[in-house]
Design a protein around this nucleic acid. Structure first.
Length: 349
DNA sequence: CACTCGTGGGC
DNA sequence: TGCCCAAGAGT
């Protein structure tokens, strides 16, 4: 073992957090934890992990579930394709692998939702295969330690950092090494105010020696934010409310929402009533406008959603087929995006 | 490759 | 407050 591996390993064994998924090598639970933690902080994902493995204790339970149930367990966590891919892959593992994850990096990567990072994590933690993980933490640790200014969000950068990680990984304990690198990045080697004085590898760290911690890692792209204006129609009839399922090719895929009219710009209700979308929904309906909520802003990574809820009372006329009237008491079974959940909690339930 | 996909916390 | 960031992956 080289000095880096020794120092990192000693520090990790003494300082690692006792997280639930660190007490098992069950590939199912490691897999679930890794998917939940993609782009998600531990504090945010912890409860979801505990509830998920309780609700779906093994891969057979997950494979046998309905997609809506899986999305419901994921509701509020975001990046819902993770949940749909989790469900898809569970069925593949059961059907094609007899319920067992393959102990093979390439085969793991073929599974939906398992990319370079997750394949390396499962391979190293569960099967002791020597594949380094490269996540945001590891990029930060490596870029600071070696003083690499190649942008991490480029093809060149990924290649370069992968080579470094392959040279650095401890082949005797690849899973522990990988987790130690991430733990270091998540705790001491944080994006702002890294705690260098207690870092186990500060002596070899170029960023520390030159006091340039905040110059790394280097990133290139910045996304542009699109503005969208969503008018949700809260159509009430007796003790029911109208819901529709969101389709492919947009945010919140396969989640449920109130019938939606989206406009290019902020639109007054008087104009909205005269749009083709409104006619399509309500031509011939007996409607009463009850209330219009103030606009709320909901931020996504690259979209700014301006959301308004328009409450309507419907008197006994059927709606289009893709829209269903759902009893209020059944709403808890439907996975919904965060703004809808907030509205339901505050206004309807 | 560039773009898309959620949500919450910290400063 | 606006911006950055977080155990990435699919297309």
């Amino acid at each position: 073992m080289n000095d880096f591996q020794t120092a990192l390993g000693t520090w990790y064994r003494a300082n690692k957090r006792e997280l639930p998924w660190r007490f098992t090598k069950d590939p199912y639970k490691i897999w679930v934890s890794e998917i939940i933690l993609q782009q998600t902080r531990i504090a945010q994902g912890m409860d979801y992990y505990l509830r998920f493995v309780k609700r779906f204790p093994d891969i057979h339970h997950l494979a046998a579930a309905e997609e809506t149930e899986v999305l419901k367990a994921w509701q509020g966590l975001g990046y819902y394709s993770r949940a749909r891919n989790l469900h898809t892959t569970a069925k593949v593992i059961v059907d094609q692998y007899n319920g067992h994850f393959p102990a093979d990096y390439s085969l793991l990567k073929q599974l939906k939702g398992i990319g370079d990072y997750t394949a390396a994590a499962i391979a190293s933690i569960c099967f002791h295969l020597v594949y380094p993980v490269l996540d945001g933490n590891v990029y930060r640790v490596l870029s600071r330690y070696f003083g690499i200014n190649t942008p991490i969000d480029t093809y060149q950068g990924k290649k370069e950092f992968l080579r470094m990680a392959e040279d650095l990984i401890d082949p005797q304990e690849p899973g522990e090494f990988n987790q130690a690198m991430m733990e270091l990045g998540a705790t001491l080697c944080s994006p702002v105010k890294p705690d260098c004085p207690v870092c186990p590898v500060r002596n070899g760290c170029l960023a520390f020696r030159t006091d340039q911690m905040m110059e790394f890692p280097v990133k290139g792209k910045k996304e542009k934010v699109v503005q969208r204006y969503l008018n949700f129609l809260v159509i009430r009839a007796a003790d029911s409310v109208a819901l529709e399922k969101r389709r492919d090719q947009d945010i919140w895929k396969h989640l449920y929402q109130f019938p939606l009219i989206e406009t290019e710009q902020p639109t007054e209700i008087e104009s909205l009533i005269h749009t083709p979308a409104w006619d399509l929904l309500f031509s011939g309906c007996d409607l009463a406008l009850e209330e219009i909520s103030p606009r709320v802003v909901h931020l996504l990574t690259h979209q700014r959603l301006h959301i308004r809820f328009i409450r309507l009372r419907l008197n006994g006329i059927a709606l289009p087929q893709n829209i269903q009237m759902v009893p209020l008491s059944d709403l808890t079974h439907y996975p919904v995006p965060k703004p809808i959940e907030k509205y339901l909690t505050l206004e309807l339930l």
